[in-house]
Amino acid sequence: MGLVRKQAPQAPEEVSPEQPAAEALMRQLDDPDPEVRREAALALDGVTEAVHALLIRATVETEPRVRDAVLTTLAVHDTEEVAGALAVHLASDDPGLRTAVAEALATMPRSTPSLIPDLLAAPDHDIRVMTAMVLADLPHPEAKTWLVRMIAEDSHPNVVTAAIDALLPVATSEHADVLEEAVHRFPGDPFLRFTVQTAVSRLVGTA
């Protein structure tokens, strides 16, 4: 008896197990199993219609590895909608979320820069500290300029020291003046003085 290849019925809407449809993946973002949620978030890479669902999941997700996957997928979109929605979480009470969001925003060089002026003017100095974290890793030609402006103008010493730390890896001797001026603006802050002394001595090659 000859072998007869059995033809499996293929409905047009049928989805193979390897490539579940985006809708199924979006439902899996709410699965009780964190590993299912994480794999779904990663599999939604590049799926524009999943952005809203991913933004919601980023807000409610408590499992760090799932949240990181969600933010990684969202960051690839690099749109102002995504960046604006994520930036709200820089003020989160959840330290894991605000730090992960800062890392994600730093990987979005097309859309994050449009948010920077508002973030630099945020009344909450903790948000401005987080903004310095974003600028430390943001691959954008204006990042250094924004950090210098924070050092020169921000009214809170913790923001200034965060900006100095972010600037240091790319600072040159031309930044020595703005660093030393920061010490004069906050004469009672020993940590700021230490930071500037360390930075300036390194920049002018006398360390």
Binding site: A162, F194, T198
Partner: peptide
Amino acid sequence: DAATVRMYHTS
């Protein structure tokens, strides 16, 4: 994560 903070506290 801030190198200057580490240096400050270490010193």
